[in-house]
């Protein structure tokens, strides 16, 4: 059996279509291609966020409730007993964490959902690296989370912070790293846990304890030993601490809350940030490895 291939003339000098390989259309190759793929997946997450403004607003309710109601309530109660009345200022970094936590963790949910809906299969059959797909999704999720955190940052004045542009930018930067770390962890969980029901349960059961045990609500130093040990083992504690110490830059020094202590040692903020970066790189590497496994 033989085949004659009609050469297809094209005006722009691109070679004719090939019967086996298809049309060798002009393409971007190599790293540029992977970066563009990351870009488009990132944009997809943001488009979804922009089209889902109702959800955006709903996700802000809980952190606002904590700051405005719990914060104010405990503030007045503590003011009645002891002298220091800055509970809202103390709580604020924790509330920021809360604001990024929900959208960051739902990035994993979006991977699980994409798998269920089949969208992931469409991406897996495209000529892009497995890592690219995960990195794009994580960056998109983290950006969405930072947008949420940024909106809450507008309430800084309510928590007694002065609006210093440098501090706000620093806070956003730290928030971005925190959000990225949490997104990567949720993506790792999404790659390991494939059933949406299981993942949903994990999220709803895990989110609260992680938040309570992060030093977001109370000073770690004065906690009883067992509670302090658990809190210090929670990676989120260092995220909260890093945020709190960054926020303290916008407060008079005498009002700044105490930093976290690890067996009498106060880890420098850069060490905390580096640790978070390390955790996210490691988690991302594991997630990509698992994700790349075909069948």
């Amino acid at each position: 059996m033989t085949f004659t291939i009609e050469p297809v003339e094209r005006p722009d000098g691109v070679p004719a279509a090939d019967l086996v390989r298809g049309d060798p259309a002009r393409r971007v190759d190599g790293v540029g291609h992977e970066l563009r793929a990351i870009g488009v997946l990132w944009r997809r997450e943001l488009l979804r966020l922009a089209r889902n403004r109702a959800q955006l607003a709903l996700m802000l309710i809980n952190p606002m409730l904590f700051l405005l109601v719990l914060g104010t309530g405990l503030d007045t109660m503590l003011a009645g007993t002891a002298g220091s009345a800055d509970y809202r200022a103390y709580l604020f970094p924790g509330v920021l964490l809360m604001a990024v936590q929900l959208p960051a963790l739902s990035a994993g949910m979006s991977i699980v959902r994409d798998r269920e809906a089949g969208f992931l299969r469409g991406m897996l059959v495209a000529p892009v690296g497995r890592g690219t797909i995960l990195v794009g999704a994580c960056l998109g999720g983290a950006t969405a989370a930072v947008v949420q955190g940024g909106l809450l940052l507008a309430l800084a004045g309510f928590a007694g912070l002065s609006y210093q542009p440098v501090v706000l930018v620093l806070l956003l930067a730290v928030l971005a790293l925190v959000a990225f770390t949490m997104t990567v962890l949720s993506a790792l969980a999404a790659v390991l846990v494939r059933r949406p029901e299981t993942f949903q349960t994990m999220l709803s059961i895990g989110a609260m304890p992680l938040f309570f045990l992060s030093g977001a609500l109370f000073t770690v130093g004065t906690l009883p030993g067992w509670l302090r040990t658990i809190t210090l083992a929670n990676p989120l504690s260092y995220a909260v601490d890093a945020l709190r110490r960054t926020a303290a830059l916008a407060m008079p020094p005498e009002r700044a809350p105490a930093a976290l202590e690890l067996a009498g040692w106060t880890p420098p903020i850069l060490v905390e940030l580096a640790a978070m970066l390390l955790v996210s790189v490691f988690a991302l590497a594991v997630a990509v490895r698992r994700f790349a496994r075909t069948g």
Partner: peptide, 13 residues
């Protein structure tokens, strides 16, 4: 367009 980006097509094409 998302698909085209994943396949590295030029935007104009």
């Amino acid at each position: 367009r998302l698909h085209a980006e994943l396949y590295g097509m030029l935007r104009r094409d």
